[in-house]
Write a protein that binds this DNA or RNA. Structure first.
Lengths: 206, 206
DNA sequence: TTCTGTGAATAGGTTCACAGCT
DNA sequence: AGCTGTGAACCTATTCACAGAA
């Protein structure tokens, strides 16, 4: 398949959200124009994004809401559920175990790890926190494609190495470090302080 | 000033992190090549990014680490501290009040709000959770440029309207909704489920 | 007639390559 | 000699505009 840009993929996720809303509101059909209005983009952008994957609409009519939602779920790989492991049982890790947004989308946190003996054995949302030294062997028994890293920066790379050895293929990283992984592992880093800095930039330069 | 792209601003934040690391390691000077190596980018990219704001290096020598760090902090508006308010005292809100990454960068969470009577009056990191109905009047007394929204999707727009009336000029939004704000207010939305979806896309399309 | 799908045009961002300072 | 600063070349993404299907 032709290389698709990250921005296109992100927009598809957004379109899917709006389609699901439209579906709940009982709409069966939607035009690229209407979808664009909700998503703060343009109709041409939407049609172009979709065109990379096929032609899902009917000329003169628009798109079938449930069908387009289905096709986008297919494209994004959301027709299946994912077993996700989470490393870091601190404040943010503990919060993410409960995060509804993940589960609604089929991402199920199935295990949580930490290095701190005081946390190991305690519970988070019904899950017992396990020692990170078990990550690799646990993964061999119960594989998981996706992992979320919520450790301090200094611990992240070690944890990631263990995961990679265990066969994890995608990592959502909240630790403020540049992780190094084999080329076939996808990493998405979310740096919350950096997001605030872009805001501070916009305050300082107006 | 000429329009600077978001990607340039984000990279500046990254450069700043690497510069601070270099500084701690005792380096006084650094070349764009070396900085590029750490940041996973190219030296040309770095020189181009910096060139939008001035010329901070010495030909044949490189950049003075502390000086360049200072200039980038200036550009990003990080030479001052920010008073930040946080709305949503749920799991994630509660976690973010403690988040060291914010404070290290000069973002101080100074107040936390919620709508839930069971949470109002309780404490998070020493701060008493206040009723969101006070946001506007509180802001009139103690202004704040930046707010973080960690409410459920349905509550976010109302909260944002209050903030905007209170004079907030930049919003970091964790609620999975498209917020509408006046043009002079900057919004940065972080959608964690969407980040996972880009990973699921990369798993599904390999 | 309406609205999609898509080449062509435009805009924007990145990389190249080299002149010029130290 | 070494490394920056930057115009020019290149590449990628978005927007335009219209032919064609319903």
């Amino acid at each position: 398949m032709r290389k698709i840009s990250e921005s296109t993929v992100r927009r598809l996720s957004l379109y899917l959200r709006f389609l699901e809303q439209s579906e709940q509101q009982g709409h069966t059909t939607i035009s690229s124009e209407e979808l664009a209005r909700r998503g703060g983009t343009t109709s041409a952008q939407i049609r172009k994004d979709l065109s990379f994957f096929g032609s899902f609409g009917k000329r003169g009519l628009g798109y079938s809401v449930p069908e387009l939602a289905h096709r986008i779920r297919e494209i994004l790989g959301l027709e299946r559920a994912y077993r996700v492991i989470l490393v870091g049982a601190g404040k943010i890790g503990g919060a993410l175990v409960h995060y509804e947004g993940f589960r609604q989308r089929g991402f199920h946190v199935a295990a949580i790890y930490d290095r701190d003996p005081k946390k190991i054995g305690s519970r988070r949302n019904g899950l017992v926190v396990r020692d990170i030294k078990h990550i690799e062997t646990d993964l061999k028994k119960e594989p998981s494609d996706i992992a979320i890293v919520v450790t301090p920066a200094a611990a992240a790379q070690d944890v990631v190495d263990r995961m990679v050895r265990g066969g994890v293929k995608a990592i959502l990283n909240f630790a403020p470090v540049q992780l190094s992984v084999p080329r076939d592992v996808a990493v998405k880093t979310v740096n919350m302080a950096l997001e605030l800095e872009t805001l501070s930039y916009s305050l300082a330069n107006r």
